[in-house]
């Protein structure tokens, strides 16, 4: 039980990571593969956020009532995740655009059937 409470976020993060990786490795449909990529990314972001957590910590934002740094979480992973999410969105948008064009050319999104170039 102690183990679970200690590592639950890591388990969740890597769980998502592996689900995404599994989808990417086994699915045939390009849209599903892209979804897998997104799930995998989400896992990585959750991991990044989890490593910055301090037990009982608050958001690293000062206000009139919060002036002490004592119980604040690490701000750096949050900044990294912000960057990571933007990059993830960019790749996702481009991937979907390519999927639309690929469908226009082949009439299918099944990656096993699209073999003009050798895989």
């Amino acid at each position: 039980m102690n183990f679970l409470s200690q590592y639950i976020y890591y388990i969740g993060a890597f769980g998502l990571f592996f689900i995404g990786l599994y989808i990417m490795l086994t699915k045939k449909n390009l849209i599903k593969v892209i979804i897998g990529l997104d799930i995998l990314d989400t896992g990585v972001f959750l991991f990044l956020i989890a490593i910055g957590y301090t037990s009982g910590g608050t958001a690293p934002i000062f206000s009139k009532s919060v002036t002490e740094t004592g119980k604040m979480v690490d701000p750096v992973p949050q900044a990294l995740v912000l960057t990571g999410i933007v990059i993830g969105v960019s790749v996702l948008a481009l991937a979907l655009a390519l999927a639309i064009r690929l469908y226009g050319h082949y009439g299918t999104l099944n990656l096993r059937k699209i073999k003009e170039q050798r895989w």
Partner: peptide, 21 residues
């Protein structure tokens, strides 16, 4: 934007994006 270009870009993107993660 031809067949070969789009297909290779998709491949490149999937492998590259996995690498980035």
């Amino acid at each position: 934007g031809n067949k070969a270009g789009i297909e290779s870009a998709v491949k490149y993107l999937l492998q590259g994006a996995l690498g980035s993660s």
